[in-house]
Nucleic acid binder design. Structure first.
Lengths: 259, 259
DNA sequence: TGAAGTCGGTTCATTATTCAAACCGTTGGT
DNA sequence: ACCAACGGTTTGAATAATGAACCGACTTCA
């Protein structure tokens, strides 16, 4: 990993639960030398990607990221396009719909929509990390990735989130087979207990996955009828989003067979 | 400028009018070696800040910037807070209201609101570059910056945008005096011909400027009454935004004297 | 009061990375 | 068939990154 990538990886230390971090703690969390971290943060600061708060001098994400995101949405309006699709999907299914997007080698939640149908629902946080091996969305994407990308995503150690999380590399590879056959990834409680998820990959213009759409519901509400309904609407949503973002399905994708 | 800052400066080459750029052109635009640019872009790509389009392999801003912006807005909801204030300001004044934000050493448009009052209005583009020396917002900010920041912003050569643009360093420094006295920066046609702008700086928790609020109107509509109205509402908007973002006015700021 | 930990930030010899220029293989126009 | 431009890759020579120790300012606690 080069210097630039190391410096940018510091940005991944910030999260909803840890929006501001001091110099020494960033050094500790990243495992890098404090002097190195200081120089990197100073350079990030000159470009507006981080800024320092008042007297404590802690670092946080800077206003520059807002400009970059605005620019990106202006030329590639992913969120603009996805949000109404997610809203429709959540209404049609009565459950929480969400979209995750690959950025670099990680998968993160990009947008979501809740349904008002039930008081109990699966809740989410924007920008949340979505581990490839433990989420329906992650596996839906891996099923259409090159083997080297798969190997990187399944590098040890794989964290276990619930008693149902599959952490064995070979077992996970076996899970990908049925996903390739149907395009659909299903998971029960592998990331959050008692959550049943349906997910499908979304593809870019190069026919490679860029993210995933998913519907997450309490396992108790899953019946054959509701899963069938979710599958149908999720399929439509993926078709719509892929088309409207200029994406193309890969060869041999199940949705290409109209029968 | 270190390697990290150089790599990040590549991101500034992307704009609304130039959302995708090829490797050779990035090298040309940045003045760096092609091999250097290639390595930097590859590292930016691993972190999701840029991505490559289909077969042409051109580069554009990546999905990673969306996540960073979401995270930043979650912890420091600048745009969320500013947008309703801008909407109110545009309705109250009948003209275009906008907010610019410092990111690194540059000033960019972060948000704006149009008024429906007139068919002719000043239009804006998000993420647009706002040169410090030629905009009312830029000067409103410079008036409260340290002298070294001012010198950097006024480093030659200063581009001339209209016949009214002031490009002489000493003349610009003189413009800052009345701004410090009133907190208000006014400009007629120095960036866009026939546009009259009122601007005031907004401050962060460290009592230093973080950006500016402004009202831009066709010069033909400016009368003593309308400018007085704009000043009053702009002042209120700055007070409100500064307070709601946890900012503090610097010592000696005119808004601190209630008389 | 003062010794021991922090903290953010700085220094400097050692070392690894980056640089510039030339070179591939491919593509597209003439 | 040619030529130019493209994205990408290699190469010694030059430059920048690195990390341990250090600094002064603060807190903590005895």
């Amino acid at each position: 990993m080069g210097t630039v990538a190391k410096a940018l990886s510091l940005l991944n230390l910030f999260s909803l639960t840890r929006p501001e971090i001091g110099l020494s703690e960033i050094a500790r969390l990243s495992g890098m030398n404090k002097a190195t971290v200081y120089r990197m943060l100073s350079e990030l600061q000159t470009q507006g990607l981080v800024e320092q708060t008042g007297p404590e001098r802690a670092y946080r994400l800077g206003a520059g990221v807002l400009r970059l995101a605005t620019l990106r949405e202006s030329s590639v309006p992913l969120l603009d396009v996805a949000k109404p699709i997610l809203t429709d999907l959540s209404i049609q299914t009565g459950e929480t719909a969400h979209m995750s997007v690959i950025s670099g080698t990680q998968l993160h939640l990009a947008a979501y929509a809740y349904s008002p149908a039930y008081a109990t629902k699966v809740t989410m946080e924007n920008a949340e990390d979505m581990p490839f091996h433990a989420t329906a969305s992650g596996l839906a994407i891996l099923a259409y990735c090159d083997s080297d990308v798969i190997e990187e995503a399944l590098a040890e150690p794989l964290k276990s989130y619930t008693t149902n999380t599959v952490t064995n590399r070979a077992d996970i590879l076996n899970l990908l087979e049925p996903i390739r056959a149907t395009g659909l990834s299903e998971s029960l409680g592998r990331y959050e207990a008692e959550v049943y998820s349906h997910a499908m990959a979304v593809f870019g213009p190069d026919r490679r996955p860029t993210g995933a759409l998913a519907v997450a519901a309490p396992a108790s509400r899953m019946t054959p009828e509701t899963t069938a309904k979710i599958r149908a609407h999720l399929t439509d949503a993926v078709r719509s989003l892929t088309e409207r973002t200029g994406g193309l399905l890969p060869d041999k994708h199940p949705l290409l067979q109209p029968a």
